[in-house]
Structures are given as structure tokens and as C-alpha cells.
């Protein structure tokens, strides 16, 4: 935390939003749940094939993850966010105090307003998820985040740290004939050509394109059980 003056800060810590509730249909994650809780939650990680743990465990350190909340990460809709990336790969919704329940994908595209994020809801659809991120140093911001999932039979790629915020690319049928090296390559090229990248200190736009293509192809093969 920089030593900058704080004008008004309101503590939302006492509203009881710090638990993860699991039912047969969904996970309901309070906005004040910490990243460390996500990392350690058995139900969430068993549902996500440990993708959530993988997405979270390189974020700075245990102490930081004990303080940072899912609400902060999702609300911020930060470009570098591992959290936004991995939750966009699942059938995820946000509950807003005023705005009600909307899909995370819709929320991620909205402008910042004065609403309050109450909880994140993950529907337990049949789902396979793989999370991957490229980091120059293990606890650094990612150069690219790349999640792949298959929800109810349809594939999607989520690419973040472009360095812009994570975007979803759905399969348009490239993988409908099954996952082969060729279809994986074709899907990866499709994803790479549909995601805009740019340059910052951690990597150039061209390198990010290259990463998107390479990681998507590799991870699609992993999801298909070919690697």
C-alpha cells in the first residue's frame, strides 16, 4: 500500500460475505472471500479440476492472498487478473446490490459505477477447466493468462493480461469434430486472431499473440486428454 492519503474508506468487512456456500446446483462465493479461501476450498477445486487453485497460487504470496478478496479482484476487472480469467471460463454470475444477478461476462464489459458486488455465483454445469498463465517470475503479474474450458460440451478460451482485461472466445464449431492436433491448432489460431493484444513492460503485442496461440493449442490438447 502506498503512503497516499485516504479520503473516505468504508469497511465492508462486517457484512458476513466471507463464506463460500455450496449446493448441488451452485457455489455462492461472498465478495469478501479471500483468494486464500478460494485456493483452499475443496469443493471449488474439485469442481474446477484445481484450476482455481492454479490461478490463485502464484499471486504474490500467502499473506497477500489472505487479504485480497474475490470481490476486489472481480469488481476491479483488472487487465492482469488471474481471477477474472478463471471465473470467466466457468458459468459464472455476479450478484450486484442494485443490479441483481447478471453473467460475469456481461459484468466484465460494464463501466465502473457505484453499485456494490455482493457475491459471485458459479453454476455447477458439467465442466472441464484448465488454467495457465505465463509469468517471467513466479509471483509476478502474468504476461498472459489463458483459461480453457468445456462447459456442457462447448469450448471456450479466456485470455487475459493482453494486457487488457480478460475476454472470452467461444468455439464456433472448429472443435466439434473432436480434438486433434489440427483442430487444436485451428482453434488456437482462431482465438489468437480474435483477441487484441498490446505492448507493455512485460511483453510485446506480437509475443502475446504468439503465447495465446501456443498456450491455447497446448491446453486444448490437455483438455482433450491428448497430453
Amino acid at each position: 500500500m502506498q503512503r497516499t492519503p485516504v479520503n473516505v474508506a468504508i469497511d465492508l468487512g462486517a457484512l458476513g460475505l466471507d463464506t463460500i456456500e455450496e449446493t448441488s446446483e451452485e457455489f455462492s462465493i461472498g465478495a469478501m472471500v479471500t483468494l486464500r479461501q478460494l485456493e483452499q476450498h475443496e469443493g471449488l477445486n474439485s469442481y474446477s479440476d484445481n484450476a482455481i487453485k492454479t490461478a490463485v497460487q502464484d499471486i504474490i504470496g500467502v499473506q497477500f492472498r489472505n487479504m485480497a478478496t474475490i470481490g476486489g479482484s472481480i469488481w476491479g476487472r483488472f487487465g492482469f487478473s488471474d481471477i477474472l480469467t478463471v471465473f470467466l471460463a466457468m458459468d459464472t454470475y455476479v450478484e450486484l446490490y442494485k443490479g441483481g444477478v447478471i453473467s460475469l461476462r456481461e459484468f466484465s464489459g460494464m463501466k465502473y459505477d457505484n453499485d456494490i458486488l455482493v457475491r459471485i455465483i458459479v453454476k455447477k454445469k458439467p465442466c472441464k477447466v484448465i488454467y495457465d498463465a505465463m509469468r517471467i517470475q513466479r509471483t509476478d503479474y502474468p504476461v498472459i493468462t489463458c483459461a480453457l474450458s468445456c462447459i456442457d460440451g462447448s469450448y471456450r478460451a479466456v485470455i487475459g493480461a493482453r494486457p487488457g482485461k480478460a475476454v472470452v472466445v467461444e468455439d464456433t464449431g472448429i472443435l466439434s469434430e473432436g480434438i486433434t492436433e489440427d483442430s487444436a491448432e485451428a482453434f488456437a489460431s482462431y482465438v489468437a486472431s480474435n483477441v487484441r493484444t498490446s505492448t507493455n513492460m512485460r511483453g510485446s503485442a506480437a509475443y502475446r499473440k504468439h503465447l495465446i496461440k501456443g498456450l491455447t493449442a497446448r491446453n486444448i490438447m490437455r483438455i482433450g486428454g491428448q497430453i
Binding site: 500500500m1 474508506a9 499473506q63 489472505n66 487479504m67
Partner: peptide, 8 residues
């Protein structure tokens, strides 16, 4: 364990 530099 938390970071005391990052908490008021």
C-alpha cells in the same frame, strides 16, 4: 499471516 504494510 498478513502484510501489515497493506492494512490500515
Amino acid at each position: 499471516p498478513i502484510l501489515s504494510c497493506s492494512l490500515l
